[in-house]
Design a protein around this nucleic acid. Structure first.
Lengths: 249, 249
DNA sequence: GCGGCGATTTGATCTGCGTCAAAGAGTGCA
DNA sequence: TGCACTCTTTGACGCAGATCAAATCGCCGC
């Protein structure tokens, strides 16, 4: 078995399981874990495929194993706003809700680890720590959403781009705390258009601001997607973040 | 006891308790409810007072009994974004988090029903349905935050104002489902500045758009704060909402 | 009734970002 | 090798909303 996969069994190498089974296994009944294992299944999607449409029945919950998925909301006239970005180990879906409240789309090739909802809910009732872990994850998501609201409502285009690069950079390599001055290198997993949907901008503005940050030496690019950041603190300053908290979720 | 208060005891008139004790009482141990009752206390604030500053230690969780509180984030240079609006029965605070991630401010006179965090957390462990209810509430908040992100990222000033009026109107009177054509009347509990912070606008733009909606007959005003909406569907159309879901949280 | 003060409205002007348009750049397929 | 397609960059221009400024309203204490 590929040990980078997210799952809920007791595999000792499963380090980024979103419900942290390793931390709680001691408290679990073995047969409950086995039951989770039985309802688990994997689904793969190609880049660009839609996992589920807003309003569709959603009879599973899932975590991202590899690849990137986005949550987007769309208005009748086509205006779109990304409302969530799912990287490996992120969780999607909610016990107790029938239908998906937004589109879930694979922006890269994607593998998800799914659980049928009903058995998962039963499991939650029998195994309280799963619910507790889910609450913790949901609260983290809520904090991230609120940070994002500050970005959408009050930041300039340049600050938005810098923030996005900082968020992806920090998530991508799990890494570099603030104050670590080392250079930072990673791929942007989103098209300019997806970034625009994330940031509440147009793709032209995204492109212009990326060019501007490059011109000003805040970032450098190899190709269109590979970014390196010579000075992380400089980037964070451009992002308008205050110097300690924030943007971590 | 004022039976409109939110609390966790089994008072039969406590209809809007956020953890729905009435629905779950049958499953609870009486002495657990009594224990919650013991750690409960009320705090009052005047309009404009700050309940807690971002970064401060927060050793309680609470629900709003009467009045209105806001959650705001502030950038170093003073730009502010409201990230949450707490109306009566809304909950704030999180088990397992030391410090407040944003400012909590009373925008009207405010009474909160508080629980010291540690005992509340202990209670959660012993009484799983409290955690389940908290998860449910947090998921609702997350949905509301994501709807709000669409507003911040993609709506015009006019749509934002219409959306805000629709949100407050629907929450204020618990009321009028879509399709109900009756007129709708309520008070805006926020200053123009607070609305601006909510919507990612300036207070001048808020004022101008409210005037425009009034001029166009979408709303009418008595004084500065009292709104009535002759045609709710018209308002929702102005808000750019699609015709079924949304904006309900 | 009269000042004082914050909240609100309205006007004039400026500007950041959107819109429209067209020209590269990268990749795969024939 | 060249065409077709998508993604990206860059330019020119316009506008929604910000900014700056000045009334006006409403309310409270005197």
């Amino acid at each position: 078995m590929d040990t980078t996969h997210i799952h809920f069994t007791g595999h000792p190498d499963c380090g980024n399981c979103p419900i942290r089974h390793r931390a709680v296994c001691a408290r679990c009944e073995t047969d409950e874990l086995a039951a989770l294992e039985q309802i688990k299944y994997y689904r793969s999607f190609e880049a660009g495929q839609t996992v589920i449409w807003s309003g569709d029945r959603m009879d599973f919950v899932a975590s991202v194993v590899t690849g990137i998925a986005t949550l987007t909301q769309t208005m009748e006239d086509g205006r779109r706003q990304m409302v969530g970005l799912l990287l490996p180990s992120d969780f999607v879906g909610r016990p107790g809700r029938e239908r998906a409240p937004y589109d879930v789309t694979a922006t890269t090739d994607l593998v998800m680890c799914c659980f049928r909802k009903k058995p998962f809910e039963d499991m939650m009732v029998r195994t309280p720590h799963i619910g507790q872990r889910l609450l913790e994850m949901t609260l983290d998501e809520l904090d991230a959403a609120r940070e994002w609201m500050l970005l959408l409502g009050r930041k300039t285009a340049r600050e938005k781009i810098a923030s996005l690069i900082a968020i992806i950079g920090r998530r991508d390599s799990s890494l570099k705390l603030r104050g670590d001055k080392g250079p930072l290198t990673f791929d942007l997993p989103l098209t300019r258009e997806a970034m625009a949907d994330y940031l509440g901008l147009t793709l032209e503005t995204v492109s212009r601001q990326i060019s501007a940050l490059k011109r000003d030496g805040v970032i450098s690019l190899e190709g269109k997607r590979h970014v390196s950041v010579p000075d992380v603190d400089r980037l964070l300053e451009e992002a308008g973040d205050d110097t300690d908290g924030g943007m971590l979720a």
